[in-house]
């Protein structure tokens, strides 16, 4: 059969380690609702994640993003976003900020990209 069946056994939940599933299910995320590639969900699986046009773990191909635009950093149970001296800045719920401790549902605008922060479990 075609390649779609090559890894079919990986769809059986029991074949994946439970802690990996839980880690994915509980991960904080940036839900991209506008901008190139939207809609899509970017999971925050490392303690420090850089978002940018061409650098970092989350790359969004928008000309309005700087190469490295924003850093997401886990500090204890919280996530902090910081502007990496980008050209178009970060707007948190409509207000331009340098950095912020994020809360569930916060909307981040980076140029023409809009991301909604989800804190995870």
């Amino acid at each position: 059969m075609g390649s779609s069946f090559d890894n079919w056994d990986r769809t059986i939940p029991g074949s994946l380690p439970m802690h990996d599933l839980q880690r994915l299910a509980r991960a904080a995320a940036l839900e991209q609702i506008r901008g190139p590639g939207a809609p899509q969900r970017h999971l925050l699986l490392e303690d420090t994640v850089v978002v940018g046009r061409s650098e970092g773990q989350i790359r969004i191909a928008s000309g309005e993003l700087s190469r490295s635009h924003m850093r997401m950093e886990r500090q204890g149970p919280e996530w902090v976003c910081t502007d990496l001296d980008s050209s178009n800045g970060i707007y948190l719920n409509g207000v331009r900020i340098h950095s912020a401790v994020l809360r569930e549902g916060d909307m981040l605008q980076l140029g023409d990209v809009i991301l909604v922060f989800h804190a995870g479990g």
Binding site: N93, I97, S99, A100, V101
Partner: peptide, 13 residues
Amino acid sequence: MVVFAAREGVELK
């Protein structure tokens, strides 16, 4: 004029 609620943990430059 930009009007907003001061919020703990927010930093402006």
